[in-house]
Design a protein around this nucleic acid. Sequence first.
DNA 1: ATAGTGCTTCCAGCTACTGGAAGCTCAAGG
DNA 2: CCTTGAGCTTCCAGTAGCTGGAAGCACTAT
Lengths: 129, 129
Amino acid sequence: MNIGDVASRSGLPPKTIRYYEDIGLVKPVRSTNGYRRFTDADVHKLVFLARARTLGFSIEDCRTLLGLYEDQSRESAHVKAVAEEHLHAIEQKIEQLQAMHSTLSGLVEACHGDSRPDCPILTDLSTVK
Amino acid sequence: MNIGDVASRSGLPPKTIRYYEDIGLVKPVRSTNGYRRFTDADVHKLVFLARARTLGFSIEDCRTLLGLYEDQSRESAHVKAVAEEHLHAIEQKIEQLQAMHSTLSGLVEACHGDSRPDCPILTDLSTVK
DNA sequence: ATAGTGCTTCCAGCTACTGGAAGCTCAAGG
DNA sequence: CCTTGAGCTTCCAGTAGCTGGAAGCACTAT
């Protein structure tokens, strides 16, 4: 299978698939014409990667998870630990964003937003906290 | 004032302040010894930048906001528009992260997390959605 | 034969810094 | 006066995860 087919099956752009080869996540063989030739197993891996990335796992996490995926003697505890750590990171990001949101929405509401120059948003930004 | 003092007053690392000079956000003059010399106005700008960055504004947004901050004839509507757009982006990010969180926490709960290899997390990841 | 699409590689750029090396400047202590 | 250490300078490279573009070969259809 050529890269274009794999792209449409996995939902990943060809560029990204090449990049994943560069960093060693997939290792397609080459046809005599130099084209990458992907096996079904390669496609599975790429689907796996696409899904893991939409769940926000880093590339390094993906590498780990892919290793576990292919290791028949893995322990599910290992997978769970990786996922839990990521979950924790997501929670922290959400909290950060919610803090930003709360502050900023307060400021936006306080700003009359007309042609006058005075603005509580700018006042806040220029204030040392 | 030297960069070290400015760093402690603004909370920004010296490296970051130099970077902000590189990209034209501040323009400190130079002393005869080659050191950057910051005025109070420069410090105000850097405090402004530090605060805007903690609220998640991009550097380009910061550049715009800084321009408005220094423009006495600005319209608060302009500031508000920039802030609202950013607020919207924050909301979208939060939604994305919450979707990830919801999926992932379901999977983590479903995984028994022991020494056995079978794992619903991996099963999900390897499934085309 | 030719046109058009798909594939290849390589290089550069994106965001917002951060680390490190090499070297100059300055203030304090002996 | 000399040395030591901290602070400053510049420059280069690397981080994450792609993405865009150029130049050029391969393949298919007409």
